[in-house]
Amino acid sequence: MKEVFKMWKSTKMVVLVALCAGLYAALLIPFKAIVLIPGITEVRPASALPIVFGLLFGPAGAWGSAIGNLIGDFFGSLGVGSIFGFFGNFMFAYVPYKIWQNLGIVDKEDAEPNLKSGRKVVAFIVAALGGALSCALVIGWGLELLGMVPFAALGAIISMNNLVPSIILGIPLLLVLYPRIKKWDLLWTDIMPEEDLPQTGGRARIGSIIMVLGIGFGMIGGFVVALGAGQEAFSFASSVAEGMSVVLVAGIGVVATFIGSFMQ
């Protein structure tokens, strides 16, 4: 995860953060009127952008997605939940490029996100799923913790609201953008010094596996408990509110996701 912090030394990467944030906010704001949950979320075709930003611009795409979402919140949904929205949208772009790099779906010899093979299209879909669910997990857990929106409802809406545009719009968008970004030498792996790039190999792969398992456990476990299964096992007696069972289970997933992220 060192590249997330070391990228701020690069002027080009900082400019890419600003560009990603501006584009994301510009596409989010016009759809703020098409509300799904008042004050929380809305129809978001802009959700196609974070995975593309992440694969092309790496940590700059992650920071840009987080900041862009926060800017968008100023136009109708700003609140304490925006804190979790910031981190959720960061993970929306961060998780995909880590999955792409470390899970072995893509050949190391041809790891650039050009979608020139069926294997890379599959990797894109897996990466999009991971990004969409990680965003839903962080935001759903946070707003359940605050008592604002039930985890199951918000998690399901955010997951679908993120995943569908990521796949349907993200694939053609990446196909169009990649050749130009490559030609202009703006891929993050071409911009950042080699010593600042994240290490790949055993530790990074284990981190990615822990991250993916954390996302899966948090989402599936949170839904299962929210729907009533296992309440007795996770409530630790009647003194603990039912909602806290969901917070606990989803929270374990959030913690595992971030531990896995820091290992990469």
Rank of each mutant, 00 (worst) to 15 (best):
G253L: 12
G118D: 13
V122T: 10
F57H: 10
L213H: 03
G170E: 10
I215N: 12
K6W: 13
D73I: 09
V80K: 11
S82G: 11
F84Q: 08
I71F: 14
A132K: 01
A123V: 09
G58Y: 09
S47H: 06
F84R: 00
G251R: 10
G88Q: 03
V138M: 07
A241Q: 12
A226W: 07
F151D: 08
E195D: 13
P165G: 00
M1Y: 11
M244E: 01
A237Y: 05
C20P: 07
V17R: 08
M7S: 10
E112W: 14
V164E: 01
I83W: 15
K32C: 05
P50N: 03
G68P: 09
S238K: 10
D73G: 03
L23F: 11
L174A: 08
A66Y: 05
G222A: 06
S235P: 04
A128V: 10
G22T: 14
G251M: 13
M1R: 11
V80M: 14
V255P: 14
I215C: 12
I51Q: 01
M192W: 04
I209H: 12
I259A: 06
F236K: 00
G130A: 07
A152V: 07
A237E: 10
F5D: 08
V212D: 04
V240T: 08
S134V: 01
S208Q: 09
L187E: 12
C20R: 00
T189E: 15
S159T: 02
W141C: 07
A66W: 05
R180S: 12
N162T: 00
G88C: 04
V122D: 05
V176Q: 10
L177A: 14
I252N: 11
A237P: 06
G104K: 03
Q101A: 00
L248V: 07
F84K: 04
A229D: 04
P172K: 05
M192K: 06
G104E: 03
S47W: 00
V164T: 05
F223K: 03
V254P: 03
S159Q: 03
R203I: 13
F53M: 07
E194Y: 06
F53I: 03
G104V: 01
G118L: 12
P172V: 01
P150S: 12
A18S: 08
L177F: 14
K182G: 00
G214Q: 07
L197K: 15
A237F: 06
E42A: 09
I158Y: 07
S117G: 13
T257G: 14
R180L: 15
G218M: 14
A237Q: 06
I158A: 05
A18F: 04
L143I: 08
P172D: 02
T11D: 07
G216L: 13
M211F: 09
M13P: 01
A256E: 03
G214I: 06
M192H: 04
I29N: 06
L169I: 14
G22K: 12
L55K: 04
M263A: 06
G54M: 08
M211S: 02
K120T: 03
E109N: 12
G76T: 11
V17L: 10
A48K: 04
G22F: 13
I139P: 08
T189S: 13
S235Q: 14
V176E: 08
P59T: 00
